[in-house]
């Protein structure tokens, strides 16, 4: 997995609340058996009309945001299905971090498995960054994972909370499966004991 350490970039504003995984990547694109290539269909139904033409009003179609690396979003981002295609599509488009007041549980976890950082900040701070984002390329936002801070365009610094294990994996680009397999004797022992206690499982 790619490491995440620092990021400075353009942020796209998406103030809508409850942006769900069906919006992020509609189901017709879930038929792939690969992880890559979903970026062009990110937010497909909001981004393209019935003929497949870009809808100019949609934020990621605007020249200022075509290379956005950060999304500033309304509450409860990523609600809905467990599809990891949602973070895959965001990552494939080039989004590496999201800033919101809250996320749906599965989406939140999925981000970390793909080297992406979903940041939780209080409403007032998200509002300030949303304003920054509205200024397009003129307002770059910086994220530093090590110090767990976000710096707004005019230099205000906001700290965010993050689980230490998730941070460690992201900073070092660690693969969960490899880490867990280091504990394989513990799994063996558990399996043996549970097999005796609950043989019907």
């Amino acid at each position: 997995m790619e490491k995440f350490t620092t990021l400075t970039g353009v942020a796209a504003p998406m103030p809508l609340v409850n942006i769900d995984t069906d919006m992020i990547i509609p189901k017709q694109f879930l038929k792939t058996i690969q992880r890559s290539g979903l970026g062009k269909n990110l937010f497909d139904e909001m981004r393209y009309d019935d003929q497949g033409n870009e809808i100019p009003d949609f934020v990621l179609n605007q020249p200022a945001y075509r290379n956005a690396q950060i999304l500033i979003a309304g509450d409860n981002f990523g609600c809905g299905s467990s599809r990891e295609h949602a973070p895959w599509a965001l990552a494939d488009f080039g989004i590496k971090a999201i800033i919101s007041t809250s996320y749906a549980d599965i989406f939140y976890n999925n981000c970390f498995k793909n080297g992406m950082l979903p940041i939780i900040l209080p409403q007032e701070q998200v509002d300030i960054l949303m304003e920054d984002a509205r200024k397009g390329e003129n307002a770059r936002i910086s994220i530093d994972l090590e110090s767990q801070t976000v710096t707004s365009a005019d230099g205000q610094v906001f700290s965010f909370e993050l689980d230490t294990f998730k941070k460690h994996c992201l900073l070092n680009g660690l693969d969960d499966i490899g880490l867990t397999l280091e504990k394989v004797t513990k799994i063996d022992t558990f399996e043996e004991q549970a097999g005796q206690a609950r043989p019907w499982v």
């Binding site: 467990s82 999925n110 499966i177 397999l181 799994i187 399996e191």
Partner: peptide
């Protein structure tokens, strides 16, 4: 019982465990 993403599906297939808080 709960839903997981595809990376976690691979994790469970390989280890029969899940990392959780």
């Amino acid at each position: 019982a709960h839903g997981i993403g595809t990376s976690e599906v691979e994790h469970v297939l390989a280890t029969q465990t899940l990392i959780q808080k």
